[in-house]
Design a protein around this nucleic acid. Sequence first.
DNA 1: ACAGGGTCTGAAATCGTTTACAAATGTAAA
DNA 2: TTTACATTTGTAAACGATTTCAGACCCTGT
Lengths: 338, 338
Amino acid sequence: MVTSTSQDVAKKAGVSVATVSRVLNHSPHVSPNVQRKVLRAVKALNYQPNRSAQRLRAKRSHVIGIIISDIQNPFFTAVVRGIEDIAYKHGYSIVLCNSDEDADKEQLYINVMRAEAVAGVILASTSETNPHVHGLIAHHIPVVAIDRRIKDRQVDSVLVANAQGAFEAVTHLIELGHQRIGLIGLPPTRTPGVERYEGYQRALRERGLPVSRKYVCWGNAKLQGGHDCALQLLDLQPPITALFVANNLMTLGALSALRERQLQIPNQISIVGFDDMPWAPLLQPPLTVVAQPTYELGQQAAELLVDRLEHQEKPVARLQLQSNLIVRGSTGPVPISA
Amino acid sequence: MVTSTSQDVAKKAGVSVATVSRVLNHSPHVSPNVQRKVLRAVKALNYQPNRSAQRLRAKRSHVIGIIISDIQNPFFTAVVRGIEDIAYKHGYSIVLCNSDEDADKEQLYINVMRAEAVAGVILASTSETNPHVHGLIAHHIPVVAIDRRIKDRQVDSVLVANAQGAFEAVTHLIELGHQRIGLIGLPPTRTPGVERYEGYQRALRERGLPVSRKYVCWGNAKLQGGHDCALQLLDLQPPITALFVANNLMTLGALSALRERQLQIPNQISIVGFDDMPWAPLLQPPLTVVAQPTYELGQQAAELLVDRLEHQEKPVARLQLQSNLIVRGSTGPVPISA
DNA sequence: ACAGGGTCTGAAATCGTTTACAAATGTAAA
DNA sequence: TTTACATTTGTAAACGATTTCAGACCCTGT
């Protein structure tokens, strides 16, 4: 079997390649008769346009680039799935890149996107002031920022109401009587880290509680980071009675630290995680979390991008999705001893 | 900023485009002097070859296609990450597709791969006799099968020793005294489903235990499937005392079913899952599982593919990776009452 | 009958590379 | 000095699509 080209189709249908192209691109002014002939030839030869040639000539492409930090983070997994489903619906494929929060790797991949002439890019940027994206925008490759803000007035974005989510989580803890609440935070160099910290602070302040730096530990967004931060915060005197962990994998790490210390949840310490997971309700006790609409976030980003591709000049959209506090068993009243 | 082409570089360096191409492709017979000039121009203009043009002309591409069933399955997440890391090292990008075990969707994506002229495809096939892959092989696009065998002597493959893994898990249960062991299996239309069932049967047979169809339930590989199957198997009389679940998400579903029935693990029932997860040790009790080398599987597949791209005619490779039974707390002796 | 305007179709240029071929130059052997 | 041959470079033809331009054809109104 050999790939058939528009030439072959043209010959078989007894028309020119130009006509073949016109039929396939639904351009007007082509007689129903010819159209039928061409479509029959297309089917007979199982013809598929060579996308490289299309891209080269028409500068049109059916690929969406995604740059995230790590597909192994369940948050991004769900986001990517949301993107893919919408992309599929509109006939796009996705090329996926993991930046690992490394600006150089991100830069490289942005260059790849340009070289591959993707239609658009959905990006969880490694920083809010991202100089690399200009390379895309200058080439009229639209960018949609997800999860992390990009300080550029030209990019659409879909973010989560991080501050509000953190605020609700910490307020929940305060209402249970907790006063010394540890935060295992994300590095404050990106939106989620900044905003979740803000929410944490605001909740304490509104209830007249002191905000102390010693209750805060910045982790590396991985399991290990949560584990190490938890151990550090557990050593404080007087001891903390509750823990708010700003990311899913770090919550896992914190939980294993709590288990090592043989602390009873929630009798001796309460814990709230950020981002819900399928296994969260199955833990003992079930985990209280701030759920994020991850799958929807991906969908919205993809919709926004596809829409932008079809309407170059539409106004910039900035979506903010609401989070949702799900109270399960890992949060309870302050220990009597404290 | 406008994209610069090889023309621009040629002009700036005072040479022809052919020479530019030669320098960039490390072809021999180019004087060091000219080489230096070209490289300087490349850097000055921040030139990046247009990959569509390259692909069109040279039929060479820097993209690897991945078709899996669902990126939200943690198994595939790890596999994809393994692939990506190796691909990155060799200068390839990846385009990712979810087939959702739907043969039509798979077919469509295989066509996309062909149209996109990817360098090669890594495929978790929806069936062992996959007619669609011929469309790729006929076009000399190499295919590497992962997780599921493809009955075609031309494809490299990386599989897991499923039967052995299941055998060890069930033998472990038998040695604890269990005699009525339920299996929540994967559909026996694909390799993991078939082989894990084989291992289950062989373990029972070798210990002289009866193999009964009523102890087996085929789930849909999702949470829901595990949940429904568990409920069904728990209704049997006399009751089963142990459960072997052939997939990670179904294990989660089964666990929630056990919780609904308020069954104590492992006092009232033992459970073994297939595929280890970061949260498995954090469950109460920690989950006994058959761990698969998921990340390595992805790496091996990518290595195999890259190797094949560089050595067209090398002999077909079939790798089988070992699994590893990790005994934690969810398996214990048979309940006294039973 | 003819000009004017629309509809349909094809020839040829084009996108940015790679590569076959030829030309130019240099070097060594006769 | 001439010849033979290797090395280096350039010219131009691909690759397979889209798109501009112009020509052919068919109406319609004068």
